[in-house]
């Protein structure tokens, strides 16, 4: 290989540079996010573990079922009916986007674009 010394140094600099977030945050533990759970109800659409793992997939699934397939209800594992709606089902119990959704999403730098169109409960107040 020609110029192997330069190439190898270049590769090392490249790797160090792209691992920057790792170096910058090395050894600094952040507190785990604590999303605020609704106080008046204990039960979500599905079990807590299921929701934690699959809420995003479930929402995408609801979206396609409702908008594209003309279905209205979701039937959970207990046989209960839920209207498939982010604004009218999820956010009726989880009354805040900032205190529920954003807490985890901000920590892990996830940026779902739901709220660019859907109206978060706290945003309704802006219009009243």
């Amino acid at each position: 290989m020609y110029n192997s010394d330069k190439v190898i140094v270049g590769i090392i600099i490249f790797i160090l540079f792209f691992a920057m977030p790792f170096w910058l945050n090395f050894g600094k533990a952040k507190a785990l996010p604590k999303p605020e759970l609704p106080s008046d109800t204990k039960e979500c659409v599905e079990s807590r573990e299921y929701m934690r793992a699959f809420h995003m997939k479930m929402l995408l699934d609801w979206r396609d079922k409702k908008v594209r397939e003309g279905q209205v209800y979701y039937i959970n594992s207990q046989g209960k009916f839920f209207k498939m709606s982010l604004q009218n089902t999820c956010m009726k119990c989880h009354k805040s986007m900032e205190k529920f959704c954003d807490r985890c999403h901000t920590t892990i730098s996830a940026h779902p674009d739901c709220w660019r169109c859907h109206i978060a409960p706290e945003e309704v107040k802006k219009w009243q």
Binding site: Q87, D113, R116, P121, W127
Partner: peptide, 12 residues
């Protein structure tokens, strides 16, 4: 939007 229907989304 001067007022919103909180049950329906807006668009972007």
């Amino acid at each position: 939007l001067s007022q919103v229907n909180p049950e329906y989304p807006t668009r972007t």
